[in-house]
Design a protein around this nucleic acid. Structure first.
Length: 599
RNA sequence: CGGGGCGUGGCUCAGCCUGGUAGAGCGCCUGGUUCGGGACCAGGAGGCCGGAGGUUCGAAUCCUCUCGCCCCGACCA
């Protein structure tokens, strides 16, 4: 083996080399033939089998050499795009004193999700879940004048969250790498610019990493934020639902999605009828009533008793619809919302759950979903155990505030174009958020404007889950043989594989090809292991190396093979002298194709 | 936090019901034969059966407690 190969390459000042030795035989790449029993989702299984990660504890993973190489490449892409919009990279402490979190009020709000600890003096500390407080603390100490704004600061580092239930490998963990950036602007217009810049940077980042994302409108929560968008990767391994319109661009988080309910299955009975009680012994569910009355669930009125801010509210929906707690809490202006306990219901209604309805309710507000507006002569509970009413007409037989409190469902009409909406399971990989003044106001960040008046800067925060990009990329791109990494974030771009390591000609050719790849900046690994070719091919496929140059039988005729992992096309024969140039062309084309081309 | 499942060499698992000297395949080490999609033969190393307590002459196996991991649900700035 030529010793030149294992000597560190000369490094120009200021450039960063990941590792000088790229000989497979020298690297720690512990691939597994069998799938470890604890792994359920594809990305988790493959990350383990391909030797990218090992688990240390529930939701805590070690990133081994290959995993770290991919993560570093992802981080580098993020870094480039963040720098391109003028953001500045910081490195912040993971260990935070309680005080800053108490100032913002989140010491209490975060509850058991925050890792907390005490130092030797008994002082409270926590491990940072996110860095709004720290960034704001820096800003308020240093920013004095409008002339210093806007600012965009970011960091790529480990954050902690004591998840109640870590799961799905790297998809939901307790310690993770996150890119978070924070913007400080003089006014809302400035924030709009920072937000838009991040939106575009994020599109570029995800495109370059080879993950297909759907940007969706998201709920900004009870934090007073005005606008928020999530970047979602469609995948069955995900746990967030997103509503998308196949016809127009509409897409929204399920919590927030608006839609038009489908037309009821049966037209309402005509006429100005009065409510009429009927006996329904033991019938409690909507399904029971459908069977009993012979009317579809869309003719039933569902009554849910909620407790909002400590006070009862009656929520009404069409029988087949689900309540959106997010929309409901917004509708009633309460942050804390929960279903009522059965004993409370009996107390307030004098009837058991299953026989409730809006008629005659005086002791609480009634909020009805808009899908009930204009309906008439429906079925509802009678507020008398085992009795229901027919011919109940909203607005006549009871008064209610009509608001959209319904969770959208697949098949609903798009509010923009009317097409039938689809529902997708997704993984959240990024979130951009107009924070407003929450942190700057509570933590006392103020600068002077041009008139010398004190003003509070407006903030935004923008996060990306780095491991989630890796995991969701694998979720989207894998086959029976292993991971199908894009060249942009694969741990290595090409595996140079001599079939017979004992053949000095093959070895020499492989070393030359390897060296030529390095010279052209192609991240190569030379599989110099004294293994049977099948083992090398299987490993290269499993690990997700996008290109392979195989040096074998036809070398004496000056021919080697090039295999493209994605697409499953058969290997092509290429002249030895041309193969690296050919590879370079393919890689460049792939990288160029991954760039975001705009909307 | 509720419900379920599982802890036995590095990995996948058998053995447990019916207590009696801890097994297989893969991987690993040595030698040999092989060498284009996870080779074959021979030899070998490696396990306080998650932990603690109990029952018993005797516990991987039965009982109690505990810890850990996975899945479903609740939760998720």
């Amino acid at each position: 083996m030529s010793s030149a190969l294992i000597e560190p390459q000369k490094t120009r000042p200021g450039t960063l080399k990941l590792h000088p030795i790229m000989l497979w035989s020298k690297l720690f790449i512990p691939t597994l033939r069998e799938t470890p029993a604890e792994a359920e989702v594809a990305s988790h299984q493959l990350l383990l089998r391909a030797g990218y990660v090992r688990q240390l504890a529930a939701g805590v993973y070690s990133h081994l050499y290959l995993g770290n190489r991919s993560l570093l490449k992802i981080q580098q892409i993020i870094r480039e795009e963040m720098d391109a919009i003028g953001a500045q990279e910081f490195l912040l402490p993971a260990l935070n004193p309680a005080e800053v979190w108490q100032e913002s009020g989140r010491w209490d709000v975060m509850g058991p999700n925050m890792f907390r600890l005490k130092d030797r003096w008994g002082r409270d500390l926590c491990l940072g879940m996110t860095h709004e407080e720290i960034m704001t603390a820096i800003a308020r100490g240093e920013l004095r004048s409008y002339k210093q704004l806007p600012q965009m600061w970011y960091q790529i580092q480990t954050k902690f969250r004591d998840e109640a239930r870590p799961k799905s490998g790297l998809l939901r963990v307790r310690q993770f790498i996150m890119k978070d950036s924070y913007s400080f602007d003089i006014d809302a217009a400035g924030l709009d610019v920072a937000y838009q810049k991040h939106y575009e940077a994020y599109r570029k980042i995800f495109a370059r990493c080879g993950v297909d994302v759907i940007p969706v409108e998201a709920d900004s929560g009870a934090m007073g934020g005005s606008q928020s968008m999530e970047f979602m990767v469609p995948s069955d391994a995900g746990e967030d639902f997103v509503v998308v319109c196949p016809a127009c661009k509409y897409a929204a988080n399920l919590e927030k999605a608006e839609s038009v309910a489908v037309v009821p299955g049966t037209a309402d009975p005509e006429g100005d009828l009065s409510p009429e009680e009927f006996h329904t012994p033991g019938l409690k569910s909507i399904a029971d009533l459908c069977a009993f009355t012979g009317l579809p669930d869309s003719s039933q009125m569902k009554s849910l008793v909620m407790v909002a801010g400590g006070k009862p509210v009656l929520a009404l929906l069409r029988g087949e619809h689900q309540l959106s707690e997010t929309k409901f809490s917004k509708a009633v202006g309460a942050t804390e919302v929960r279903p009522a306990h059965p004993f409370e219901i009996v107390d307030w209604f004098g009837a058991e759950p299953g026989s409730l309805g809006p008629v005659g309710v005086k002791n609480m507000p009634v909020v009805a979903d808009v899908a009930l507006e204009g309906r008439k002569n429906m079925i509802s509970g009678a507020n008398k155990t085992d009795y229901h009413l027919r011919n109940v007409t909203p607005g006549e037989d009871f008064q209610a505030k009509f608001v959209d409190i319904r969770q959208s469902q697949a098949g609903d009409g798009c509010t923009v174009c009317g097409a039938a909406l689809e529902m997708k399971k997704t993984i959240e990989v990024g979130h951009i958020f107009k924070l407003g003044y929450k942190y700057s106001a509570s933590m006392g960040l103020r600068v002077l404007d041009e008139k010398g008046a004190e003003i509070t800067p407006i903030m935004g925060s923008y996060g990306i889950g780095v491991e989630r990009i890796l995991a969701s990329c694998i979720e989207q791109h894998h086959d029976k043989n292993g991971i199908l990494m894009p060249a942009t974030i694969a741990p290595f771009v090409v595996a140079v594989t001599p079939v017979n390591q004992a053949d000095p000609l093959q070895r020499a050719a492989a070393e030359k090809i390897y060296a030529d790849c390095k010279a052209l900046g192609i991240d190569a690994i030379l599989d110099d292991r004294d293994e049977r070719p099948g083992v090398k091919f299987k490993d290269a496929d499993l690990v997700g190396i996008p290109y392979r140059i195989t040096i074998g039988k036809k070398l004496p005729q000056g021919i080697v093979e090039m295999t493209v992992r994605r697409g499953g096309a058969p290997a092509s024969e290429v002249a030895v002298d041309a193969v690296v140039a050919e590879l370079k062309k393919l890689v460049d084309a792939e990288v160029a194709a991954a760039a975001w081309s705009g909307n």
